[in-house]
Design a protein around this nucleic acid. Structure first.
Lengths: 123, 123
DNA sequence: AAGACTGTTTAGTAGTTAGTATACACCTCC
DNA sequence: GGAGGTGTATACTAACTACTAAACAGTCTT
């Protein structure tokens, strides 16, 4: 028991969606601009998920939310680290506090943040 | 103009703090468990900042906030991606909305999140 | 039974990240 | 004038990430 992948669900997930849309592995690989060989392994979770750009192209083809699919790939969208780094302590505090909250509550806080944006700093 | 480092301030920053505490490069390297050679280059921003664990040890020695120093190193603490991935869409929405807000406002939202934690989901 | 599909096996690779060891030049103090 | 300190240049490296090309085996169509 040594050769197991970290992300067990990414490959199976995109394979199911691809098959539901009746796209062949080769056609899909072509549209996603990756090699069929690679895609085959990724879909069977024999290889870890591709890089961010490839995951975004896959999400686009499958009609999935990119942030959601990136999460399944064990990644976060590359713009988020930059945002966190603007106020690392405050953002880290927030994220740790919000960890475990249901999505609906986080969305409410997001709407609050949008509200603060409009009023406060106009930049 | 091709050999410039990404993070121009990390090295200079820690060198200044180290010199302020009058610790020699070698002693500091030993305490941070990295080689003096490597530290020398890092402090002159000739090499990119070290990995997260080394940055944390450096922050500890210098009495700096780890999240802040990690940000200066162009990284985010490794627990944060995992938190974002619990609710990737909601968290990404929040972060993009909170981008540009002053730290004080983000801290207020963090306190709100703490409040929600206590009442709502007890896990 | 040939041709055109399907997915898979085998065998690599280029680039990035995060470092190390050896050896050097300079300074001082005794 | 050598013993012990300062920082630095040179020269590698091991592990990991994100892939590719060539060839193969089964199925389906005509």
């Amino acid at each position: 028991m040594a050769n197991e992948p970290k992300q067990k669900r990414f490959g199976a997930h995109i394979r199911a969606l691809r098959e539901a849309q009746e796209i062949s592995l080769r056609k899909f690989a072509e549209r996603a601009q990756i090699s069929p060989t690679y895609l085959s392994k990724v879909e069977r979770d024999e290889f870890p998920p591709p890089g961010e750009e490839a995951v975004r192209r896959i999400a686009d083809i499958l009609g999935e939310d990119p942030d959601e699919l990136l999460a399944l790939a064990g990644k976060v969208a590359s713009d988020l680290p930059g945002i966190i780094q603007q106020h690392p302590r405050a953002m880290a505090t927030f994220l740790r506090a919000a960890s475990g909250l249901p999505a609906a509550e986080i969305e409410k806080l997001a709407r609050r943040a949008v509200g603060l944006r409009k009023k406060g700093p106009e930049k």
